[in-house]
Amino acid sequence: MKTGVTSNLPVGNSRISFLTGLDWKGHHQYINNLLALFWDYFEGIPTIMSAFYSNKLVPNDFSNTIPKAGGGRTTSVCVTKKTARDKLMNNWVLLPDLPDYIQFFKKLGINN
C-alpha cells in the first residue's frame, strides 16, 4: 500500500518541496563507512542530487535490523537514527546550488 504525499505525485515530478525528513538504510548495524545518496527527479529524470559521507558511524547510529516478514529474497535492513544523519550531514560531498535543496538540507541540519 502506498502512503505519503509523494506516492500520489506523477513519476518524473520533483519531490523535494513535499519532504519533511529523510533517513538512509543499511544492511546491518556494523557499518562505519557510509556514502549516503539522495535522489530526486530533476527535469523529469531520476538524478542523484546530494551525497553525504561518514566514517564515524557506530552500531548505535542504526535501528535494529528489520528482517523481511516471511523471509524471501529481499535483504533485511536497519534504518539510520538522527545521530547517523547528523554525522553524515557534517560531511556533504555533493549538494546542488538550488534553493529548494539547500533549504531542505539546512532544515535538517546540514553543516555548510
Rank of each mutant, 00 (worst) to 15 (best):
L88P: 01
G4V: 05
F38R: 05
Y53L: 03
N111M: 15
Y41K: 03
L19V: 00
D86T: 02
L9N: 13
V93I: 02
P46T: 01
F105W: 09
T74W: 11
L22A: 14
N90M: 02
S7W: 05
W92D: 15
N55L: 00
N111R: 14
T83E: 01
N32V: 04
C78L: 06
L108H: 00
D97K: 11
N112S: 06
N32P: 08
Y53D: 02
L88I: 00
E43V: 09
S63M: 03
F18P: 06
D40L: 00
I66L: 03
I45L: 08
E43D: 15
T3Y: 12
N90A: 02
G72K: 02
K106E: 13
T74M: 11
K81N: 14
N33R: 14
W92Y: 09
L98T: 12
Y30L: 08
A51H: 05
G71F: 03
T80V: 02
P96I: 00
V93E: 01
A51E: 08
V79F: 06
L95I: 10
T80C: 09
F62H: 09
L22I: 11
K82E: 12
S50Y: 03
K106C: 07
P67S: 09
N13F: 14
D40C: 04
D100N: 13
Y53C: 03
E43P: 12
F38N: 09
A84T: 10
P46Q: 12
S7P: 12
T47W: 04
K107L: 06
D61Q: 07
S17K: 12
R15A: 11
Q103S: 13
N33W: 11
T80W: 10
T75C: 03
Y41L: 02
P10D: 12
L98F: 06
F42M: 12
S17C: 09
T6R: 15
G70Y: 05
N32F: 08
E43S: 07
I31T: 15
W39Q: 08
T80L: 05
N111F: 14
G21F: 05
N32M: 07
R85D: 15
A84V: 00
Y41A: 05
L22D: 15
T20L: 10
G4I: 05
N91H: 13
I16R: 02
I45N: 02
K25M: 15
V5C: 08
C78H: 01
L95A: 10
S63E: 06
K87N: 03
T75P: 09
K107Y: 10
K2S: 10
M89V: 03
L9K: 14
N112Y: 11
L37W: 07
T74D: 14
G70D: 01
D23L: 15
E43C: 01
D97E: 08
V58M: 07
L88C: 00
R73C: 10
I48T: 08
N60K: 06
K87H: 07
G21Y: 08
F38W: 13
